[in-house]
Nucleic acid binder design. Structure first.
Length: 717
DNA sequence: AGCACGCCGACT
DNA sequence: GTCGGCGTGCTC
């Protein structure tokens, strides 16, 4: 930074002071540093200013007062005066600009800034929360997602809590011994993977987990093996329930003192306390939900992710990074880069996302899967039944069960609990004619008709209520069965099986576990309780509803949800049976029957490659008022290989309906364009979009409407 | 985002 | 002359 012919920092500051004295009337001198002594060594602080909506992605230089010299170390939280007004006097004596929070990133000898430097107003706390490694990661994530560094830091560094900070952190416990392989023996490469972790190596694997509850213990062993090598470990899980299971397994294996649990529901104080324990190195392992993806684990030796297909891994705050992508960044170090060696990587899931398949296909990670016959023995028997079949038994008909499902439930209840998975209400796809399957459209605007409740029929675009629908194609008057919620399904099943207790688990009330006795357990996807000893059977109802969603990921998602439920059922050796009510010829249905999630993901990956869809390309969505989207695309200096799809109108949020994240405000017509580039051009695309948006933000106010930019949009149909 | 600066028209 | 409109640009 400094060159030989420049004055040293202290001299430069003195010069600046002189200049200012001459240039401005004495009363206008910024009060903060008038006559104040500055730090002698490295008197300039580079500060990353955290100013709300403003996207200031650069540091600003401040002078370090002598009395803050000791505390003003890189990484600490500071407060500085920031804002327009060149030191003008307001209210008699105040310096221009308000106090804003920031991070001190670096101490340097000189500043390139030509004007007078303001002084650091305050070192909020001496805790250097923004370590160089965390700053580097945050910069990478901001770059990957076309977001601002300030936004990412807000996700990566939890809010300070003074009481939690005041408490001293203990020294870390001695590392545990390397664990036995345990259930990893079921995978040919399992024990070797564990041994490599224990030796301090950094293997990368995509692990197709066998059905059953052992995954938590297996993840715990991977953590323990990494700890045994003297390194730290990080595991990100999709929700609090799975985090609690790993917490219990890890505590069983290595005791309570080796890891911290980072979850949002712990409350701000506990959350910051746990985060600090990780940051200070008082614990070497961290587990938790998506915010933990940034956890500043010391000497990171392993990053692991459980169930990367779960939507819980997608951060919903800007720039909406995905835990899998962030952990891939953490496990990747460019050749020749400085710093510690990259950690090992473990992505575990019962199913297989297209992105996970790509990590293997591209050679970045190795597959870690059980032999075919092991999988077959441990997975339940899966049978399919088309949804046109209707049961003979009147009780089954009343419960809308095909006879095979009815028989399976009756048989299963003799041996234990039976799980019934029903799609969430409101998850309903477009309604269709019951006779010819023509989608039901609004007579007003041709939008898709929806059934917000059992009584009404409304348009998903314009919100108009339809009272007398008839099929445009065949004149039919009946709509295809709308999705019935978990509660009503439970009532109907209760009448069909009067002697059996019925329990429900859904969004409002999620059951964690159920006992091993006969019971019907009705659950929405993702809320399935674990049954003691495993379910005897499972019925996966209304498969058509999961498959009919107009989304690129509908099939993958349906398979993931079915596998998630089926993995809680006893293996077919123990009589476990699953019935999926869906068209048997469909690909995800067949993948479930064969229990072949990887094959399904690979096939899907091939199709995405043919169609140049993610993850084989990198995509970004630009949405906003139509004129703004068009202008934005015209202004943006996109890379030459970029391809623009659309823009197309987005569905209008009907008045009174809550606004979807990233969607238009109620009643407003928005457009959305997709921009895609071949893999490898992602960084250039993100840079171009970020620059274009920054330019637009600068012109805001003058009637320049803003657009939303989202990298890796989750819903592309 | 704020907030000041600046360059044009109507007023005391 | 000078007050103030908001369009433009900067914030260490």
């Amino acid at each position: 930074m400094s060159s030989d012919d420049q004055p040293n920092g202290a001299e430069q500051l003195a010069l600046i002071r002189e200049t200012v004295r001459k240039a401005r009337p004495p009363r206008a001198k910024p009060r903060t540093w008038r006559d104040a002594a500055m730090a002698e060594h490295l008197p300039v602080a580079r500060v990353l200013v955290n100013k709300g909506v403003v996207h200031l992605d650069r540091t600003f230089d401040y002078a370090v007062p002598a009395e803050l010299d000791a505390e003003a170390r890189p990484g600490v939280r500071v407060r500085v005066r920031f804002g327009a007004g060149k030191g003008q006097v307001r209210g008699g004596r105040r310096e221009g600009g308000g106090l804003v929070d920031g991070f001190l990133v670096e101490r340097v000898a000189t500043s390139d800034y030509q004007g007078p430097l303001a002084a650091l107003a305050q070192v909020v706390s001496p805790e250097p929360v923004l370590s160089p490694a965390l700053l580097t990661l945050a910069r990478q994530v901001a770059e990957r997602y076309a977001g601002s560094l300030a936004d990412v830091l807000q996700l990566a560094v939890p809010p300070r809590h003074a009481k939690a900070e005041a408490a001293a952190s203990p020294a870390p416990p001695p590392p545990p011994p390397a664990p036995e392989p345990g259930d990893w023996e079921r995978y040919p490469q399992g024990p070797g993977f564990l041994a490599a972790l224990a030796r301090g190596e950094s293997p990368r694997a995509v692990w197709t987990a066998l059905p059953g509850p052992q995954w938590a213990d297996e993840l715990a062993r991977a953590v323990a093996a990494t700890l045994a090598s003297g390194r730290g470990a990080l595991v990100v899980l999709p929700d609090g329930r799975t985090t609690a299971r790993l917490d219990a397994a890890l505590t069983r294996l290595v005791g309570p003192g080796q890891h911290a649990v980072l979850t949002a529901d712990a409350g701000p104080e506990q959350r910051y306390r746990s985060w600090l324990a990780v940051h200070r190195g008082a614990v070497r392992a961290a587990i938790g939900t998506r915010a933990a993806m940034f956890a500043p684990v010391r000497d990171l030796g392993l990053v692991a992710l459980w169930e990367d297909g779960d939507s819980g891994h997608s951060e919903d705050h800007a720039p909406q990074p995905h835990a899998r992508e962030v952990l891939v960044l953490r496990a990747t170090r460019e050749a020749g880069a400085e710093g510690p060696p990259a950690p090992a990587f473990l992505l575990g899931s019962v199913g297989c996302t297209v992105e996970a398949a790509q990590l293997v296909r591209g050679g970045w990670a190795h597959p870690l899967a059980a032999p075919r016959d092991t999988t077959r023995a441990l997975a339940p028997r899966v049978r399919t039944i088309g949804d046109t079949e209707v049961a003979r038994d009147p009780a089954a008909r009343a419960a809308r069960l095909p006879s095979l499902a009815w028989e399976t439930a009756r048989e299963g209840l003799r041996h234990g609990p039976v799980l019934v998975q029903v799609p969430r209400r409101g998850y309903a796809p477009r309604l269709a004619c019951d006779r010819c399957r023509e989608p039901a459209r609004c007579r007003n605007c041709s939008g898709p008709l929806e059934a917000p409740d059992a009584e009404r029929l409304t348009c998903g675009w314009c919100g108009r209520t339809e009272t007398d629908w008839h099929c445009e194609a065949c004149g039919g008057a009946r709509l295809r069965a709308r999705v019935v919620g978990a509660r009503r399904t439970a009532e109907e099943l209760g009448r069909a099986f009067p002697a059996v207790p019925v329990r429900t688990s859904g969004r409002e009330q999620v059951l964690d576990t159920v006992p091993g006795g006969p019971a019907l357990v009705v659950s929405t996807p993702g809320a399935e309780p674990v049954a003691d000893g495993g379910y005897a059977a499972a019925l996966l109802l209304d498969g058509w509803a999961q498959l009919a969603r107009p989304d690129l990921r509908a099939e993958e998602e349906a398979l993931r949800r079915w596998l998630g439920a089926a993995a809680l059922v006893r293996g077919q050796g123990a009589g476990g049976t699953v019935v999926v009510v869906a068209e048997p010829t469909l690909r995800p249905v067949q993948a479930l029957v064969r229990w072949d999630p990887v094959g399904h993901a690979l096939r899907e990956l091939e199709e995405r490659a043919e169609r140049h869809f993610p993850p084989v390309s990198r995509m970004a969505a630009v949405s906003g008022p139509p004129a703004a989207v068009s202008a934005f695309l015209a202004e943006a200096e996109l890379p030459p290989e970029a391809e623009i799809l659309g823009p197309v109108p987005l569905p209008v949020t009907p008045p009174g309906r809550p606004r979807r994240p990233g969607g238009p405000p109620p009643g407003e017509q928005w457009n959305r364009a997709l921009v895609r580039v071949p893999l490898g051009g992602g960084t250039r695309l993100a840079q171009a979009l970020k620059a274009a948006r920054a330019a637009r933000t600068a012109r805001r106010g003058a009637g320049v409407e803003q657009v939303l930019v989202r990298i890796d949009p989750p819903d592309i149909g």
